[in-house]
Amino acid sequence: MAHSTNERRVISVVVMNESSVLARVTALFAGRGYNIESLTVAPIPNSEMSHITIATNGSTKVMEQITKQLHKLIPVYKVIEHEEMVEKEMVLVKFPIAENLSDIAALCSTYNGGIVNVGKEMVIAQVADEPKRIKHFIEAAERYNPTEIVRGGVVAIER
């Protein structure tokens, strides 16, 4: 297990909406030594279930164990883990108003976003894109001296 390569994977978990279900999922990761890179959770409309999206990494064998252990949790209804997922992530970035706003706006629109709020000293930009492109966006945004970056975590859906 130790020698196989670590791969980034996104696991989508459908759970019954009940108290402490998120704690069960995260405690499983902590207790068994699995890594959580990002985690999002929200209710599924018109149902009694919620969707938890977890970005993690590990070998194929570890992924298999994570999937099976998640399945064992009583309120877990479904676990989806494969490569065919459409992934999106959102990020909010705060820039000083003194920066070149048209450059920032152009950059954001390249990554499916734009400026969403303008204050006295700051502007706030929002971008939603694939996680890999979000990483590129953040690198590119560095030159405009962002004062705060908040990533939303990955959400994913089966293709």
Binding site: K61, E64, Q65, K68, Q69, H71, K72
Partner: peptide
Amino acid sequence: IDAANIGK
């Protein structure tokens, strides 16, 4: 009976 035991 526990799938998680298989291949663990």
